[in-house]
Amino acid sequence: VIAMPSVRKYAREKGVDIRLVQGTGKNGRVLKEDIDAFLAGGA
Rank of each mutant, 00 (worst) to 15 (best):
D17P: 06
V7A: 05
K9F: 08
A37W: 10
G42Y: 12
L39V: 10
V7C: 04
V7R: 01
D17A: 05
A40S: 12
E33I: 13
R8F: 15
R8I: 15
A37R: 14
P5G: 11
M4S: 15
V7S: 03
R12F: 15
R12Q: 15
A40Y: 10
G41H: 13
A37H: 12
I35T: 00
V1H: 08
V16H: 01
A11C: 07
A3T: 08
E33S: 14
K14I: 06
V30F: 01
G25F: 02
I2W: 03
S6R: 08
I2Y: 05
A40T: 11
L20A: 10
P5Q: 13
Y10S: 02
G23P: 08
D36W: 04
G28M: 06
L20I: 09
G28D: 05
G42L: 14
N27A: 09
V16C: 06
V7D: 04
R8A: 09
S6V: 08
N27I: 05
R29H: 10
R12A: 15
I35N: 00
I18P: 04
I2D: 10
G15R: 08
R12G: 08
A3G: 05
V16W: 01
I18F: 04
K26A: 12
V16T: 03
D36Y: 04
K14M: 13
V30Q: 02
V21K: 00
I2N: 12
K14C: 07
V21W: 02
G28F: 06
R29F: 08
M4T: 15
G41D: 13
V16N: 01
I18G: 01
G15S: 07
R29W: 10
A40R: 14
G15E: 06
P5Y: 07
V1Q: 09
A11E: 01
G15P: 01
V16Y: 01
K26Y: 12
D34S: 02
I18M: 06
Q22K: 15
G42W: 11
E13N: 10
L39M: 10
T24D: 02
R19E: 11
Q22D: 08
E33M: 12
S6G: 11
F38Y: 15
A37P: 01
R19Y: 09
G28R: 07
E33P: 08
R19P: 03
I35A: 00
R8Q: 14
R29Q: 14
G28W: 04
L39Q: 06
P5T: 11
F38D: 03
E33L: 10
P5W: 06
A37V: 10
V1E: 07
D17R: 04
I18K: 00
D36L: 05
G15W: 05
I35Q: 00
F38P: 01
K9W: 10
K9V: 09
Y10V: 02
A11P: 01
Y10D: 02
G42S: 13
N27Y: 11
K14E: 05
R8P: 03
M4R: 15
R29N: 08
D34H: 02
F38N: 03
